[in-house]
Design a protein around this nucleic acid. Structure first.
Length: 265
DNA sequence: AAACCGTGGAA
DNA sequence: TTTCCAAGGTT
């Protein structure tokens, strides 16, 4: 559950599933994952995006082994202290893996509650205190009811109350949706900042890491992102090394971190 | 608090 | 073609 939730952070579930199956087969427990190299986990992460999630997952596995006897903790505080686990993922693991009553607020829940309760087409650009309060107040008191609620609201948002073309005629709560009853008014709040991609450092970082995933030997700096501005490549490289996603090998070559191939002994 | 961090499918 | 968006987290 923890693995699937981390993989699903900002990544569609349909793309997560095959990667999740392969990962679970290769590293079925925190103990074995903790023993894997960063290079191997970044490579196994494939093209799910945000590869530092793979590094943090491995670090989380180490922490689980060291601090929790190799068992994923159940308490929110313990979950939150794990690398790469934030409010959403901690709540999701508690709810979906342990059946606990926790306040699960993801993008689906935010959208459903924005429409159903607040009468707004979209939620605010970032999670607000009011949204957290609302979600907490709506959550059923009994543990099992809360667990069902969390799954139900997320599924409603994912399958019916979707971002682009909501299927209001099929919605089980269409009769009491503030947004629908209000005539589905267009969103009038602050605009979300669109994320740039083309030509950005993010794109170049992605190219570099993908190059290193494919190459199982150290790569010359000039071959990491062919055709790209050298100043930008150097900047991205420095950032990737700082992030622990890339490791220098010799003076001009680079590889994924912890890759012990070709190391003289 | 705002910016940054990947990727690919669909509108 | 461009834009939007996806079971967010960290700094």
């Amino acid at each position: 559950m923890l693995l699937s939730e981390v993989m699903a952070q900002q990544t569609p579930l349909a793309r997560v599933e095959p990667a999740w199956r392969e990962w679970m087969e290769r590293w079925p427990t925190p103990e074995v994952l903790a023993a894997a190299s960063p290079a191997d986990v970044v490579r196994a992460w494939g093209r799910l995006g945000y590869p530092r999630r793979a590094l943090r997952l491995r670090e989380a596995a180490i922490a689980i082994v060291e601090r929790h006897g190799g068992e994923v903790p159940r308490a929110q505080d313990d979950l939150l202290s794990l690398p790469g686990i934030g409010d959403y993922t901690a709540a999701a693991v508690a709810a979906f893996a342990f059946g606990d009553r926790s306040v699960v607020v993801d993008t689906n829940v935010r959208r459903v509650e924005a429409r159903l309760i607040s009468g707004q087409e979209q939620a605010a650009p970032s999670l607000t205190r009011a949204e957290k309060d609302l979600a907490r107040n709506l959550l059923p008191v009994v543990d099992h009811d809360a667990a069902v609620w969390n799954v139900a609201v997320m599924e409603l948002g994912a399958l019916v109350c979707t971002a682009r073309a909501p299927r209001c005629p099929d919605c089980p709560v269409r009769g009491r949706c503030a947004w629908l009853l209000g005539g589905r008014p267009a969103y009038d709040g602050p605009a979300r900042r669109g994320q740039k991609w083309h030509g950005t450092d993010r794109q170049v970082r992605g190219i570099i890491v993908q190059t290193l995933r494919d190459a199982h030997v150290p790569v010359d700096r000039g071959d990491l992102a062919p055709g790209r501005d050298e100043v930008q490549v150097d900047r991205c490289l420095a950032g990737l090394i700082e992030d622990g996603l890339v490791e220098p090998v010799g003076a001009h070559h680079f590889s994924l971190p912890g890759h012990d191939e070709a190391q003289a002994g």
